[in-house]
Computed example of a mutant assay.
Amino acid sequence: MNPDVAADLKDLAGTLDGIETVTDLPALRAEIADLSEQAGQPDLWNDTEAAQKVTSRLAHAQGELRRIEELHRRLEDLPVLYELAEEEGDESSLADADAERRKLREEIQSLEIRTLLSGEYDPREALMTIRAEAGGVDAADFAEMLMRMYLRWAERHGYPVDVYDTSYAEEAGIKSATFQVRAPFAYGTLSVEQGTHRLVRISPFDNQGRRQTSFAGVEVAPVVESSDHVDIDEKDLRVDVYRSSGPGGQGVNTTDSAVRLTHIPTGIVVSCQNERSQLQNKATAMAVLQAKLLERRRQEEQAKMDALKDTGSSWGNQMRSYVLHPYQMVKDLRTEHEVGNPGAVLDGEIDGFIEAAIRWRRTQTTGA
């Protein structure tokens, strides 16, 4: 076998061994056995929410184990593919082996990213809010483009999404939207998307066809769990009810069921209008508010740590530019990662940006 190929395979094996060590496969198998036993209990679905957590975690754990075992099997098969190709002098088979090696490297590196998500809240599901910022109708349109980008990304990965609230702009696009990505490690993965996104293009809303720069903000918060102790005093809340607006199914717009909560001490405002009843909307809005307060607490703790370390790092502010005119490019301003196909990025192909940002964040926090 070519020495360079042998060295590359050895390097891939070392990376995969490291992933298996961090993942702790014996513990993962034990967790699967325990969850499988829970899932088999006849009274499991007496508590729907708890049952969904068990079945969701079981499916994720089984998928994670299968993925690692499959990568291991393919990596063990590769030397055999190379040996057969070289014995037969078959250039086509050699090209197939090289293609499989490249694909394996991409998949192993992608899996390695998960091992970098070691923050306290990283394993949580994610609550995302997108807001139109400066730029008028173009900003509202851009906010809707970003929402679609994240929904398509979640769809590509098979992650369920619950949209809690969408505030539509008058002419086009959205003023804001809040949705939950239901997947383990969604918060750790998507938290690097937080900040201001910038779009440069010929405005479709300008009858003179001028170039327009617009901005949209992305917030990401970890979903609250009972152990977080995020208590909210009812006296600190202003509750407003109103009629749901915008596109919706039958019954959505007929009653004052939408709920807006204002947390007076912090000024945080959340809304929910996707549920049928006012009570359900208030409960969901409270969960969203708790998640935002938890993220605020996490940011304050991070700011104190950053001040102690004097890193001066900030993941907020402007972090990515999407340029559609006069050239085509999407560029992350933190990592320098760039892609010359904005259409694909806006259709949900953002894994390259996310992985580069997670690696960059690790260097910021460790100084490595």
Rank of each mutant, 00 (worst) to 15 (best):
V5A: 11
P265Q: 06
Q273T: 10
E106S: 08
L237W: 04
D90M: 06
G251R: 03
D256Q: 12
D231S: 06
N341L: 05
E107I: 01
I264L: 15
S56T: 15
G312W: 07
L16M: 04
T48A: 12
N274P: 01
A287M: 11
M147P: 00
A344C: 04
T335E: 05
Q290H: 12
G251C: 04
A6P: 02
V161E: 09
E86W: 03
D228L: 09
G188W: 03
T284M: 09
G217R: 09
M319H: 01
E155D: 14
V345K: 00
D236T: 08
G89L: 07
F179K: 07
T366E: 13
A172D: 13
D90Y: 08
E295C: 02
A99H: 11
Q299S: 11
G135Q: 02
A221E: 10
S167I: 07
R361D: 08
Q290K: 15
H197P: 00
G248F: 08
A7M: 11
G348D: 07
V181M: 09
D34A: 14
D122M: 08
P79G: 02
G367D: 09
A59Y: 03
Q280I: 00
R260G: 02
R152F: 07
L94C: 02
H197W: 14
T115V: 05
Q194S: 14
T262A: 09
H197G: 00
V330I: 11
R182N: 14
G40F: 01
E86Y: 10
A99I: 01
A59E: 13
A97S: 10
V22F: 04
A356C: 07
K103C: 01
A172W: 01
E171Q: 15
G348A: 07
F353M: 03
L65I: 01
E87P: 02
K53D: 14
A186F: 00
P222H: 04
I268C: 04
H157W: 09
G195Y: 05
D240P: 03
L81Y: 10
L58C: 10
N274R: 11
R260Y: 10
K175H: 12
L81D: 15
R101Y: 03
I268W: 06
Q299I: 08
H72R: 15
S36R: 12
T284F: 00
E87W: 01
T129H: 05
S257V: 04
E31K: 13
V239H: 07
G348T: 01
E125L: 03
R296K: 15
A356R: 08
Q38W: 04
Q208K: 12
L308Q: 12
Q41N: 09
G343L: 12
L12H: 05
G217F: 08
E100T: 08
R124Q: 08
N2T: 09
E69C: 00
V224G: 03
E100Y: 00
K304A: 14
I108D: 06
V345M: 07
Q280W: 06
L116C: 05
Q212V: 06
Y327R: 04
R182C: 13
R29W: 09
I202W: 04
A61D: 15
M305V: 14
S271D: 10
V163T: 14
V288E: 04
T189F: 05
E64M: 08
D90Q: 09
Q180E: 15
